[in-house]
């Protein structure tokens, strides 16, 4: 092999390594990570919630962040799905003991996925992650409560295997 050939081969190897590194970096940037929410996620969560519900609820999220992110009241879990520095979805739940006379169980009270990122299994990954957290907290059941007309989110929970539980929600107008 001539010197010129060797030099070309070395360049090719270097180019190959650089391409591999940049592919690995791009894979890492595109990888989905599910982690506990941080105070810095506040603006993204408020914006995502507003995009989905059409309502800006800054005060509500301020209190939720104070309770579940800053003070980390356990056992409660506020998880976000992040890809490439962008929050694509979140799920929040806590463990409630002896509510309605039932043994401790996990309650999911918020789940949202950015509309453009739906149908890709992100909601399932968030739900699986919070169920793992509930299991680690020692509970064996997960519950949620939804409006009857919320067909989209009802269908999501049904697809995760949730069925009607042992309670019936009742209400009356007292005004």
């Amino acid at each position: 092999m001539s010197l010129e050939d060797r030099s070309n081969a070395l360049h090719l190897l270097k180019d190959h390594d650089t391409a591999r590194e940049s592919a690995a970096q791009s894979r890492a940037a595109n990888a989905l990570s599910i982690r506990a929410a941080k105070p810095a996620d506040f603006a993204s969560i408020v914006a995502l919630d507003q995009q989905v519900t059409g309502l800006a609820k800054r005060q509500y999220w301020k209190e939720a962040f104070a309770r579940y992110v800053s003070r980390r009241e356990e056992p409660a879990f506020f998880l976000v799905a992040e890809r490439g520095g962008e929050i694509e979805g979140f799920i929040i739940g806590d463990v409630r003991a002896w509510e309605f006379g039932e043994p401790p169980c996990g309650w999911v009270f918020a789940v949202q996925v950015r509309p453009q990122k739906r149908l890709g299994g992100l909601g399932t990954q968030l739900f699986d992650a919070i169920c793992d957290a509930f299991r680690r907290a020692g509970v064996k059941k997960v519950r949620t409560l939804l409006a009857r007309e919320n067909h989209l989110v009802l269908s999501f929970f049904r697809s995760q295997g949730l069925m009607a539980g042992p309670f019936i929600e009742l209400e009356a107008t007292i005004a």
Partner: peptide, 19 residues
């Protein structure tokens, strides 16, 4: 009726296959 509608509307064919 409202409960029946909510139940039938929230269960897709995919969910039934999983069940």
């Amino acid at each position: 009726d409202q409960h029946a509608i909510a139940t039938f509307r929230s269960i897709t064919v995919s969910t039934m296959l999983k069940l």
